[in-house]
Amino acid sequence: MLSQVLVNGVVIGCIYALIAVGFTMIYNATETVHFAVGESVMIGAYFLLTFWIVWDLPYLVALALTLLSAGAFGYAVYDRMVSRPLMSAGLLPRVVGLMGMAAIMKGLTRIIWGADAYHLPSALSTDPVRIGPIFIVPQEILIVVVTVAIIGLLFLFFQHTKLGTAMRATSQSRRAATLMGVNISVVFAATWVIGTILSAIGGVLLGPLLLVDPDMGELGIKSFTAAVLGGFGSLPGAIVGGILLGVSENLVAGYLRADWQNAATFVLMITVLAIRPTGLFGKPDKARV
């Protein structure tokens, strides 16, 4: 029982980790707490639903289109319509602006796709495979593989590409990065694009596990919780935080009550912030913002 719960927790935790990594990248580079991150997850799921099921495109084509659209959305909507006009306005107006954008997206989703919940089928078989005492479905193995691969790619991107280095430099000091010749606007745009794609991947992976509906964005709070658990602004923290959250949820669902699962998120978030606001990996100075 325990090992099964842990495996399920790690699987869903991987998805939370991916979303939280995008969220943290955006926070680090643009100092924006992305209050519409849940809606990015939602549009990822709806895009795939449209391209794959409604338009009946082959899965990989639909997936590629989904990620492209999510990236374009990140640039056109978050970067150009919210982040840039509010860049000099401070953090709180940006949060308010993003909440407004989230409401717009939710309403549009209801109008375009209807208020009903959809079920997004899995890309791979859902017949469980037995490994020792644990049952795991191929879809879940895919989730873990995809997460590890993406995090590895991101690591290489940050360490070895010019844009990745510029993104790291910008999050450490905007002024110094500018003086080195980094175009901050490009870095911000790239961050929104990558962050939104990561959220959309989260939606693509979560879609088959949950229902896809216009209120799906409420799970954005899970990525906030993951970020808080790991220490706001820490990328490794976001990964560990996401997995910890997934495991805690599954422990609650497995040993207490299934419908208390979401309460785990809220309780963890409030407890961590009340007791240790810097999380596991956070720096004390950053947490005092």
């Binding site: 209050f35 906030f224 809220f266």
Partner: peptide, 28 residues
């Protein structure tokens, strides 16, 4: 009391979680 040591968006996060907890409790 919970948010006393916190500032800015951390307040937003705690109160967001509080709001969702209340809805969850009411529905359960």
């Amino acid at each position: 009391v919970v948010v006393l040591p916190l500032r800015h968006f951390y307040l937003a996060l705690v109160t967001l979680a509080f709001g969702q907890t209340v809805v969850l409790v009411l529905s359960l």
